[in-house]
Structures are given as structure tokens and as C-alpha cells.
Design a protein around this nucleic acid. Sequence first.
DNA 1: CCTGAGCTGCTACCTGGGTAGCAGCTCAGG
DNA 2: CCTGAGCTGCTACCCAGGTAGCAGCTCAGG
Lengths: 248, 248
Amino acid sequence: MNQGLLQYGCYFETLRENILFADLPNDSLKTLLEISKNQIWPKKTCILDSDHTLHRFYIVISGKIKEYQYEINQNKELIQNILIKNDFFNICTLLKGHASRLFYEVLSSSELIYISMEDMRLWMDENPKIIGPIVNYLVKKTEKLEDRVFDLCSMDTSSRLAKLLIENFNIKTNKIELINGLSNSILAGLIGTTRAVLNRHLQDFKAIGILNIEGGNIEMINLPLLFHKLQVLSEKPPHEKEFLPNLS
Amino acid sequence: MNQGLLQYGCYFETLRENILFADLPNDSLKTLLEISKNQIWPKKTCILDSDHTLHRFYIVISGKIKEYQYEINQNKELIQNILIKNDFFNICTLLKGHASRLFYEVLSSSELIYISMEDMRLWMDENPKIIGPIVNYLVKKTEKLEDRVFDLCSMDTSSRLAKLLIENFNIKTNKIELINGLSNSILAGLIGTTRAVLNRHLQDFKAIGILNIEGGNIEMINLPLLFHKLQVLSEKPPHEKEFLPNLS
DNA sequence: CCTGAGCTGCTACCTGGGTAGCAGCTCAGG
DNA sequence: CCTGAGCTGCTACCCAGGTAGCAGCTCAGG
């Protein structure tokens, strides 16, 4: 692999689609592939040590990977993301150097390419155009996380489940994508609850006629009703603050 | 104010301390001050419209400002940050252009300087060194938010309160800073609960002998005990996952 | 000086969701 | 073919925390 992955056209095509590299010329992608290596992780591979994550930047080519947080004392796990094709991870370590506290577990056999942190940093110095998309990505991520914190504080579990389902519903295909077929405990980890409670609400949605569930497959039956579930949280008196106008 | 705030040395000194501008030469700060204006916001000023936040980038010079999220339907507010000297806000809007969903309320009379978004963007183009610190700031913020999401899912309210107190405790001065003197409802907003529940736990801490509370002032009496409160969450069986080693 | 807004400390009540446990199903591996 | 791991659907129980309401305090403004 002296030439890295340059010979594999499919990798090049995949990078071309990646929002991170959209602005970059083909030559930059080629030099990136020259310093890349590929790897296949079978289902259930767990990346718990910081060795991988401290020294390598990963881009997902195919498969499905769970990015999660876990603390030994509190026996609870929270899933931050389900990573699929064109996602990447470890960008915070790449930019700041210290280890992240995120873990990874492969949900379905995945192919990845990785670049060593040092190589990636050198490459970034030579391809400063990458900064724009990175900043964009970070801003988006920040805003998503802020919303997530707020949701956890202000919405009950069934509303958070409703939101999760809606966010992953594709109107065109009329299907729930990405999270469909995942186990109850993974869905629970995505909205910050336990398997039992999640299942309780799923059964509830099924009983009302919002969803149909069979064999791990969730099918949308009544989307408007699901939206209703999301909105009728509480119709309380509105925000009443005095607004002192701009003084300057 | 044709010359902006250039004449005010104190602003210059303050910018000099700001982590965002640490790497920048004096000249850059001067040109920044030339396009800046200042403003004083009295206590209880509320910035609820996106007009301010959409068109201006703010830097706090003095005072205390609450940065929070609020949704009319759910009558609940979550405080994302207490901003003081050297904090700034609206950087996401600055970088991406769309309005943020954060609101601001002045807790104690504050002085700010602001720069119009267009001017600030032009200035950034001319001072590209600013990008490094911005990326740093975003990465830190992302990681903080990830932790916060996890805390909300995995810790109970009294542990989150303990954590809040510890994070704001200054060992040197032996005092709780920043959040001390704030009302119960603001403290509640910071950890995602309600005033009643927050007060319940505060009284609990007082009864155990961790804190002393009088007249809105919280005094630390037994820090180790507070740490204990934080750690004894649950001592459950450890993470037991199979770790399939790297295959490549 | 009074008055009322806003805060604290507290009680009493209720419920959403966390916990535990189990039967039955599927499905991969031997 | 069987076996067991892992999943689902479900029941029953319990408690942390959300809700409501109130008395008493402080303090700024008239």
C-alpha cells in the first residue's frame, strides 16, 4: 500500500461526495488518498481504547457505526450518532490533539479509510481550503447539540421518540431510514432512555395507529398523528418578558 | 463614533485578554476597534428578536448575561451559558449566516462592544489568523455540549447540581464564583430542572453540611462531601464488551 | 412611610419513567 | 438437528422529580 488507496476509484468517488471535501480540487483528494489506508471492521467490533481514535482520522465508506458515550460508574450509555457512508469521526482530536471520550461500535460490517493524524495535519496545512467546510461542520454540530440539550430538558420521552422518528422519516420513500431495524436498546440510547421505556412508547404509538411494528421493522402509518404527538406537549401561557428596546 | 472605539484604551486591553484574539497583532485589534461600537444594557434587558443577533457580533466587556433557549409551547427555559467579561456571542450566526435560536437577558448591567456582521466578516478575511482560535473555541464548545447531553441522560438532579457547584468553585478564593448570588430559578435553568426541585436539593446539601446558604449567598463548607455526592451515583457492574482487535 | 413584585423555603400530591423480571420468539453456530 | 444468546413485549413496582400553592422575607419605587 505504498501508493495508499489511489488505485481504488470508488474511494475517490466517495470522497468527492463528502461535504468536507466538496470545495477541494481533484488533486487534493488524490494526495489525500495517497496517505490513506483502508480497513474493514466486522459487526460488533468495539473501539474502546483511545489509541485508534487518538492517532487516526476515519472516514466511513460503508456500513453502520454507533458513536456513543459511556461512563463505567453510571451504567448508562448515550448514543451521539449513527455513522454511515460519508460520515467521519475524530475531527475534534484532529483539531485539538487530545483524546475524545467517545466510543465506537460497529453495528453492521463497515469499511473505513483512515489517515494518521500527523499526515492529516500536514495535508491540511497544504490544503487550507478544508478549513471552511470544517468550520461549517462544527457550527452545525454545535447547534444540533444545543437543540439536543434543550430537547432532553423540555420534552418528555414520547415526544423525543416522535421527534427521532420524524427526523429519520423519508417522505419520498415513505420509510423510516437509518434507524430502522436497530434494536430497541439502541433506539433508547439515541433519545436518552432505557429499553423498557422506549418499547412502552413504541407499543403505545402502535396501539394508537401511528406505526406498525413487525420483526424489528417500523413502518409509518399515520404521520400527521405522530406530528400531533410531538406538538401537543403542553399548551401553556406564552413567554412574557418585558423587552427593553435597543438604547444606542 | 467615526473612529469607532479606538480612543478607549480599556477596550483594547480587554480584547488583548480575549482568547479569540490572543494570536493577533495589535494592529489587527486596532482595526477591529475602528469598526466597533459600544453599548450599555441595563439589568433585565431582553434580547428576544433575531434582529440584534442576526446582524451583530457581540463581545462582553462587563456585567453578566444569561444565554438561554426557550420554546413557547413548552413553558421551559434552559440556560446554555452565563456570559461575563471576555465572552462573546453569535459566532455561529457570524460563520453561517442564519439566525440562532438563543435568547439573551441581562442579569446585571452590562457593557458590550459590537461589530456589524458584514464588517466583522470583512475584517476576518483580512485577518485570517482569527480562524485558529475560532476553531479551537468551536471544538471546546462541541465537547462541552456532548458532555452536557450525557450528564442530562445519566446523572440525577442532585449530582448535576453537585457538578455545577464544583465547576464554579474556586479553590484559591474558597468561594463559589460566577453562579453565586443568582436566583434559584436561574440555577435550575442551568441544570435543566425546576426551581422547586433545585431548592429541595440545595436544602438537602445544607442539611448534610455541605453548604451554608444565607441571603442568596452559597458558601462551601465541605467540598469532599460534595465530591462524594457526585461520585456515589451508582456502582454498577462495569462495561463488558468484547473487544475485537484491529484487523489490518 | 407603605405597597407590591419577586424571591425563598416549605408542604403535599401525582405521575412519568426507571427497574426487575419473565415468557416467547428468532436465528446463528455447532 | 438442537442450543443458547439476544431480542421483544409485557407486567408489576417504586421513586425522583415535576406541579401547585402558600407564608414570609427583602427591597425598590412611589
